[in-house]
């Protein structure tokens, strides 16, 4: 058991989690700097592979990357420690902010500020949806799947999980019929 490297895994991912905002793709430059350039823990190609796997497995992409790199270095314990390092800053910071916000909830200025923030949150989320749509709606089949899923969520009580599972099964059926080759 290499305790020193386990500690380093925790520390490096703590730093990455604490210094990047948003997760996902925005973390790539930071991951490259810390893991490839500074530590030489993985090669740049491996990092890209890691990202590809992170994107086509369930869960938070940043966490998947942390687990993968940690596992590569120090097996199961390494995967767990790296992931804990990645989520520790969030736990600390968000808990502090949430506690603080609760104590000023009734303040009238805070309420004005929150109404403004709500407007901008909508703008930010709309932007996220558009970016995602550009990346994922690359063919007529994709658009059809998206439209069908959208209608199902709006007009039927089918749970979110069921829609994800159905879409996956549909993808396999489509592949068997030769529909995913474009």
């Amino acid at each position: 058991m290499n305790w020193k490297e386990l500690w380093q895994l925790y520390a490096v991912f703590f730093r990455i989690g604490g210094l990047t905002f948003g997760g996902g793709l925005t973390m790539l430059p930071m991951l490259k700097h810390e893991l490839v350039n500074k530590k030489d823990w993985i090669t740049e190609e491996e990092l890209i592979d890691c990202y590809a796997i992170g994107q086509c497995t369930p869960g938070i992409i940043a966490v998947n990357t942390a687990t993968f790199v940690g596992y590569r270095r120090q097996k199961v314990l390494g995967g767990i420690i790296a992931t804990l390092g990645m989520v520790s800053p969030s736990l600390l910071i968000v808990t502090i902010v949430a506690t603080f916000l609760q104590s000023i909830m009734d303040n009238v200025y805070f309420q004005h500020a929150m109404m403004g923030i709500k407007g901008v949150v909508c703008a930010l989320m709309l932007n996220t949806v558009i970016t995602l749509a550009k990346k994922s709606l690359v063919s007529p089949v994709c658009i059809a799947i998206c439209a069908a899923a959208f209608l199902l969520t709006l007009f039927t009580p089918i749970p979110t999980i069921a829609i994800v599972v159905m879409a996956g099964i549909f993808g396999v059926i489509l592949d068997k019929m030769g529909g995913t080759r474009s």
Binding site: L132, I145, A148, A149, A167, V172, T180
Partner: peptide, 15 residues
């Protein structure tokens, strides 16, 4: 690949 070909557009719809 096939599974995620189906899932990705659906996730966009869910979001």
């Amino acid at each position: 690949k096939a599974v995620f070909f189906g899932i990705r557009p659906a996730v966009t719809a869910l979001i």
